[in-house]
Write a protein that binds this DNA or RNA. Sequence first.
RNA 1: GCCUGGGUAGUAUAGCCAGGUUAGUAUACCGGCCUGUCGAGCCGGUGACCCGGGUUCAAAUCCCGGCCCAGGCGCCA
Length: 438
Amino acid sequence: MGLLRTHQIAEIPDEPGAEVRIAGFVETVKEVGRLVFVWVRDRTGVAQLTLKAGQVDESLIELAKSLNTHDVIAATGRVPEKRAARVGMELIPRSIEVLSRAERLPIDVTGTVQTQLDTRLDYRPIDLRSPRNQAIFRIQHSLVKGMVEYLDSKGFVQVFTPCIIGAPSESGAEMFEIDYFGRKAYLRQDPQLHRQLLMVAGFERIYDLGPSWRAEPSHTPRHLCEHRGCAVEFSYISDERDVMALEEELLVAGIKRVLEENSRDLELLGAEVEVPKRPFPEVRFPEVYRILSEMGKEIPYGEDLDRQAERMLADYVREKYGAEAFFINRFPFNVKPFYVMRVDEDPFWARSVDLIYRGLELSSGGQREHRYEKIVEQVRLKGMSLESVSWFTEFFRYGAPPHGGFNIGIERLTMALLKLENIREAVLFPRTPERFLP
RNA sequence: GCCUGGGUAGUAUAGCCAGGUUAGUAUACCGGCCUGUCGAGCCGGUGACCCGGGUUCAAAUCCCGGCCCAGGCGCCA
């Protein structure tokens, strides 16, 4: 592929005498006496060019000595009779072509001196050259691929729902306001409501892979202003347990793909990954209050969990079930948005489910209310004006199947899977309250 | 948004509390030595106290203001 090179570095044949042309970034130039070693890295690995006086032209040795770290070069050479380089493949070069010169790098991408995340993000395209960073995104790719393959196998259709919406009707989080031809519009904070409208439309099984935006000035290692989600919605469920079962299988499918395809990347990152055992444990409200109380944490009846409570529940589940992934079900309706389905027999509680993995909230979801009168009632209970959400609610007058879904945060999942210390490591170009460049 | 901590060469850090030598170290970079390096080694060199104001004989160090960063909480994916 491509005429500039004949081989990617990992594909160089282990045949003495074979001539190949490779290209990549210069990783290091080392002079040992009159010997010169040049390490070249492409996305597949490292090769060493070995320049020995008498074996290659003097002018080539001079050129090699003049190379800078991260110059981009192409080199033609042959595989030596006896390979001495431990770093990877070795070539005796016949020619070296400098494709692009590099100034001294502003950050260390080798890991010899750890650069702080914020500085690395200032120079993100260069930071991303490190094998470690590339491993993160290859793994993320496999995760998403595994999930998509699973959904496809179950007949789900990938759809694209709007990112610009005309009314700030979803729950809680602040939205980014934009100028829409002189009118106010908003960037979605979740594809939630449009997914539901596709259930009204009779699509039955869909997923939307796309961005969401939160205008919250969150200063934590697990929040972004822009993140991606794998948002799933499907119809004809009997209750929220069907949603949980699907979510379990989805997560397992993604993680299995990573284990199948990324063993070297996982090793490079020192990440320990296991496929979570199914079924995932479930803890329910109001028992959650009792569990926490026994652990010494009092949350008033009917109130939401805080971060500490979430972590304590994760500890509880790990100890009791040995599980890293679990569900929290039946949240109090008063802490959830208007569209969730309440439990008919005890409407204080909602069929609303969070998925926690390695102590981190990966998704919210559950069964949605599909009965028009109930939706209207819940809008009123939330103190919202029916008018503000009628663009959504009105369609439920014309028939809607029972349905549910969830939205798994891709960056959160990547972060938890690889035990990254900061979610910004799991995004190419993170958007946080302080940063929207590069 | 509230709270806490921080800002010293390209990068990462020591020094600050207890103000006073040429601001130390690692790495990067430049030059030199070395014919098998692979975190190469050895020798030499370049290079820094976030900005503004104040206290003081003297400020990287103490005080005030600003800007920037990180983390905790809240919100959540």
